[in-house]
């Protein structure tokens, strides 16, 4: 699962990277994308395309692996067999998605080890929403349903992008996410229509998670830097606002029908424009959390790093088996 708000390079360095490209090759590349053909790893591509894709797919991968933690919190406590099995499978899927995404990014020339290194040293980012804690079972249900729903909006858009390996990974991921979404919805329905205690638990989770959910899609396009060339190259497929609007349109009615209250009294659909109106999210908080000062940033990275360190002897031992064999980027 993943949100918008990808961190793209500032545009001044972008221009530098574009300057030295062979205009003929660039034109062929752009024509191929315009025809709707996918780019495959062995094709020529502009340096900037490669760089931004690596950044985007890598961040997506990191979000999956860190995203396994807030829900993983409830693996050992899931109530009943059905929930226990499903949650294990769901968190496993998130790890699987990271594996797929790192593989796609690797075809562009960055090794998985380097990506993981950049994650645990804090050099590259992951989706901000996973820096918030899951206090109760209901929080994990909120994530399973609505954070995954948000991610699907984003991923379905990206799956129409131009890079073959990323599209293939996303096709597989989206298919698996449909289980997450249904499972999450199933859990929320059971809480929202259950005992008073269950309802209360669910409402509190909605109260806690609404702000991070609105942040999830990234700052409004009015604020964030416009990335025209990435749109032309089909790297960025939908704007943050488009994704947020689509999410609200699909899911607010589903939340309301369960008798849950969304903690934003300005939230409503403008019948004339068809757009959703809402209180502007606190983007200062968003920035603060992205820059490391959220409730769980420190824990998330420390846990990921502990996992890496505890597993280091295993990888060290096994790596001795492949001595002399050279790592090459995967094929597709």
């Amino acid at each position: 699962m993943y949100g918008g708000g990808q961190v793209f390079e500032p545009s001044s360095t972008n221009n530098d990277l574009l300057k030295d490209e062979d205009p003929k090759k660039l034109a062929e590349f752009e024509a191929r994308i315009a025809r709707g053909e996918k780019i495959e790893p062995k094709d020529w591509m502009p340096k900037l395309y490669r760089k931004q894709l690596i950044r985007m797919i890598e961040q997506h991968g990191h979000s999956e692996i860190i995203g396994a933690l807030p829900e993983g919190t409830w693996i050992t406590r899931a109530p009943g067999f059905k929930r226990k099995l499903a949650l294990m499978a769901k968190v496993q899927d998130e790890v699987g998605h990271a594996q797929l995404l790192y593989g796609a990014a690797e075809t562009l020339g960055k090794s998985r080890e380097q990506m993981i290194q950049d994650l645990i040293t804090g050099k590259s980012k992951y989706s901000n929403i996973f820096n918030y804690p899951t206090f109760t079972w209901a929080d994990s249900c909120f994530i399973s349903w609505l954070v995954d729903a948000g991610a699907i909006v984003n991923q379905l858009a990206n799956a129409r992008g131009s890079y073959g390996p990323y599209c293939r990974a996303l096709d597989r991921i989206c298919a698996e996410e449909s289980f997450h979404l249904k499972y999450g919805h199933h859990c929320v329905i059971h809480l929202a229509t259950g005992t008073p205690k269950q309802r209360e638990m669910m409402q509190e989770a909605v109260n806690r998670w609404w702000a991070p959910m609105m942040h999830f899609f990234g700052p409004s396009d009015k604020i964030s830097t416009h990335t025209e060339i990435l749109t032309k190259w089909k790297v960025k497929m939908a704007t943050n606002d488009e994704c947020r609007q689509q999410f609200l349109d699909m899911y607010v009615p589903k939340i309301w029908e369960l008798g849950l209250t969304i903690p934003d009294e300005n939230l409503k659909r403008n019948e004339q424009t068809g757009e959703w109106e809402f209180t502007e999210p606190d983007w200062e908080e968003f920035k603060r959390v992205i820059n490391g000062d959220g409730p769980c940033n420190k824990e998330r990275l420390a846990v990921r790093r502990t996992a890496e360190e505890r597993g280091a002897w295993v990888r060290r031992a096994l790596a001795s088996k492949t001595k002399g064999e050279e790592y090459v980027a995967p094929m597709a």
Binding site: Q114, T121, Y327
Partner: peptide, 14 residues
Amino acid sequence: FPEQGEKDQFITYE
């Protein structure tokens, strides 16, 4: 986050 040295890297299988 201290920078670590080169990390272990397996080969890939399709």
